[in-house]
Every structure is written in C-alpha cells, then in structure tokens.
C-alpha cells in the first residue's frame, strides 16, 4: 500500500468508528451518551492521530483534540472548574509550549515506522485491554448510584460552585494550604530551572571570556 492509500484508510476507519460510537452512545444513553461518545472520540481519536501522524506539527494539533476531549469529559463528570483549568493550562499553555519546542527544533519528517507503531499498539492494547477485562471481571468497586448532583443552579445553591469550593479548599488551613504553597514553590523552582537549563551558555557566544561561567 502506498502512503496516500494508507492515510486515506486510516482516516476513513477513524470516521466510521466515530460515527459508530456516536450512534451507539445516542442509542444507549441518549443525549448524555452522545456527548460522552463525542468527547471520548475526541480524546482517543486525537491520541490515535498523534501516534499515527508523521508530521509532528499535526501530532501536536491532534493533541489539542485530546486535551479538549478530556476537558469535555470533566464537564460530564461535573467538574467545571477542572475543565476550564484543563483548557487554560493544557490547551493554552502546555500545547503552546510543545509547539514552541517543535518550532525551535528542525523539522524532522521521520519515515513512517508502521511496524513499530503497530507492534506497540497491538502489544500495549492487548495488554491493557486484557488487564482491564480481568479487573472489570474481578474487582468490586464501591460505587454510588448517586445521580447527577442536579442542575448547575442547584449545585451552586447546595455546595457552592466548584471554583468557589476549590478556592476555599486551597486556602483553608485544615485542608490543602500546605500542598498549595508547595505547588507554588514547585512552579517557581521549575520555571527558574527551565530558564537556567534552556538559556544559551555565555561561552557559546563569547568563547574568549568563558571564565567564571558554570
């Protein structure tokens, strides 16, 4: 098979799977199912394209679909704050960083290593699904049958909005304030470290005056 046909086959299969999943979700669980199917397909399809694509730029953009899909999944799980954080940080921050890295390094169009990718897909897929199957068979998960917490307004009325409560939890002395401050320190340290690692060494610019630079 030549490259073009391969590409076409892949995306065709992806489209068919998407439609199928969407239909299945709609039939099985109505609107929520359809939404779930949509986000799941965004998440997993993005990941699959990311693995599949030869061009790293396309892979990075496929990752955007993944991150957005995860944000959607968070919404379905009643975590609106997390969904927004996911979009802000992952789509807006980390993805931008990755794109920066892609742009700062030379275009590196690798030849497709189909056997390699397929072998990994098959092996990991088989392993993960087998384990998942076994776990699903044997594990007893303590699950509530609690329905949705209600409409957004009700939730806000009962518990306060998610963002509100998370904000309080962050700063309440008996909850997460230490972890929160530590996270702040971690971020600062990581930023300083990143700048330190990535900065161009002075020796590279002026090799004569290299003394005193570690």
């Amino acid at each position: 098979m030549d490259q073009k046909a391969l590409q076409r086959a892949f995306y065709g299969a992806l489209a068919v799977l998407t439609l199928f999943a969407f239909g299945a979700g709609l039939v099985k669980a109505g609107g929520e199912g359809a939404a779930f199917a949509l986000f799941a397909v965004m998440t997993l399809g993005g990941g699959l394209v990311c693995v599949w694509e030869r061009s790293i730029v396309r892979s990075a953009f496929a990752l955007m679909s993944t991150f957005s899909g995860v944000a959607g999944v968070f919404v379905l799980l009643e975590s609106d704050f997390l969904a927004m954080a996911q979009i802000l940080i992952y789509v807006g921050g980390i993805l931008a960083l990755i794109l920066f890295a892609v742009m700062l390094t030379p275009p590196d169009m690798e030849e497709r290593r189909l056997p390699r990718v397929l072998a990994a897909l098959v092996a990991v897929g088989a392993g993960v699904s087998w384990i998942g199957w076994q776990v699903a068979q044997t594990a007893e998960w303590l699950v509530t049958s609690r329905p949705l917490d209600g409409t957004a307004a009700e939730v806000a009325g009962t518990f306060g909005a998610n963002a509100d409560r998370i904000g309080v939890a962050f700063l309440a002395p008996d909850q997460y304030v230490v972890a929160f401050e530590l996270a702040a320190v971690l971020l600062t340290v990581a930023l300083v470290a990143a700048v330190y690692i990535a900065r161009r060494k002075r020796t590279d610019i002026e090799p004569q005056t290299g003394e005193g630079v570690s």
């Binding site: 189909l114 056997p115 390699r116 397929l118 072998a119 990994a120 098959v122 092996a123």
Partner: peptide, 10 residues
C-alpha cells in the same frame, strides 16, 4: 510479512 516484520521490529 508485515506482521512478522512487526514482530521482528518488536
């Protein structure tokens, strides 16, 4: 052949 190649690669 592809499968065997895949195994070879693996």
């Amino acid at each position: 052949a592809h499968v065997s190649q895949a195994f070879g690669a693996a």
